[in-house]
Design a protein around this nucleic acid. Structure first.
Length: 367
DNA sequence: AACGCGGGGTA
DNA sequence: TACCCAGCGTT
């Protein structure tokens, strides 16, 4: 019986054994050559898992290789400037991950002598490591029998046991963690967990899963019941909020002004051109408003010039229309502090700073 | 037990 | 645009 009382067949020992055998045999033939699979160094596993949080494999690949080349050990990461870490993360999104990774590296390097915790419980005390990432690290790096549950395995396991509950809600999640635990082999846990994700990713896909090519088709309860397509999780539609903002390219003798985003704003820790919400209607009023806000935030007085470009940018539930203006420096003394740094920079030096997505787009416009 | 995160890529 | 992604931290 499932937790909600609906019928859900028990997983017999023979069924589980058969599943493990078939899955591992399939993985032997279909394992992708991914850069984080070159070794089981826990540092590499950890970095890759954090990068892969809510981020697709294809996106992470290049970032991972560049990151490992620049910071090959946890000590290198711990000793690095946050600016460098963010620069390596630029474009990957969810930048809190990069700051958490950096903070956790300092703990491991300085307080744990470079030795990663080997238990799920201890790993979860580090910032940015939740139940999935902790389970992934101990199973993949140490072959310890810890279950994992993420996008691929949620889908795979939900179909495998024909889960009645919504797999995104807590009752369904609880059941799936239990299944993930129950299926674990005693040996080869590292390969087993990676094989689960690989199968979910390559065969048990969200739409039109390739059941004909699935090594465990004969064991799949959803397949037997003919309800594979019906088990798709219900997607809740997001309601977007439109925002209007403006960014200023303030020029002073060949240099431009950028500032670092603070903890209360989007792209915390990254740098950006001075950027403000626009409340006024009409370009004339907006000009006065922006000049005034620029002085308020940076201490710099400037006169608004022509519109450089309008950038449409979506981020989480916001849809931003960003007007980018040229602005000519008039005077004032730059306010720059530890809390709120700002610098004048030659456009050619913008590559050395981690910029927000829109900041990078503007930087490219400047040539 | 949900839900926001001030992401980003893709069909 | 909608949908998806090797989730986490917070309320």
């Amino acid at each position: 019986m499932a937790t909600d009382g609906t019928f859900e067949p028990e997983l017999t020992s023979a069924w589980k054994q058969s599943f493990r055998r078939k899955l591992l045999a399939w993985y032997k033939q279909h394992e992708r050559d991914l850069p984080w699979r070159k070794s089981r160094d826990p540092y590499r596993v950890w970095v890759s898992e954090v990068m892969l949080q809510q981020t697709q494999v294809a996106t992470v690949r290049g970032y991972f290789e560049r990151f490992m080349a620049a910071l090959p050990t946890v000590h290198d990461l711990a000793a690095a400037e946050e600016q460098q870490v963010l620069r390596l993360w630029e474009g990957l999104g969810y930048y809190r991950r990069a700051r958490g990774l950096h903070a956790a590296a300092k703990v491991v390097s300085n307080e744990l002598g470079g030795e990663f915790p080997t238990s799920v419980e201890e790993l979860m005390k580090l910032p940015g490591i939740g139940r999935y990432t902790a389970g992934a690290i101990v199973s993949i790096a140490y072959d310890k029998p810890a279950p994992i549950l993420e996008a691929n395995t949620i889908r795979l396991l939900a179909r495998l046991v024909a889960l009645r509950d919504d797999p995104t809600r807590s009752a369904g999640q609880k059941r799936l963690w239990q299944v993930a635990e129950e299926l674990l082999p005693r040996k080869e846990v590292s390969r087993f967990n990676q094989a689960l994700m690989e199968l979910g990713s390559l065969v048990c896909t969200p739409r039109t899963p390739k059941c004909d090519a699935c090594p465990v088709e004969s064991l799949c309860h959803a397949r037997q019941l003919g309800i594979v397509e019906e088990l798709l999780p219900t997607t809740k539609k997001t309601t977007y909020t439109d925002l209007r903002e403006a960014a200023l390219v303030v020029r002073r003798s060949g240099k431009v002004l950028i500032r670092q985003c603070g903890p209360e704003e989007r792209w915390t820790g990254l740098w950006d051109f001075p950027r403000f919400g626009v409340e006024s209607e009409g370009p004339l009023f907006a000009a006065r408003e922006l000049e005034s806000k620029l002085t308020e935030v940076t201490g710099i007085r400037a006169s608004l010039g022509p519109l450089l470009k309008t950038i449409k940018h979506g981020v989480t539930r916001y849809r931003i229309t960003l007007d980018c203006y040229e602005a000519k420096h008039q005077g004032g003394r730059l306010k720059s502090s530890k809390d709120s740094p700002a610098v004048w920079l030659a456009p050619s030096d913008l590559g050395e700073y981690p910029l927000s997505t829109t900041g990078r787009k503007i930087a490219k416009l400047l040539g």
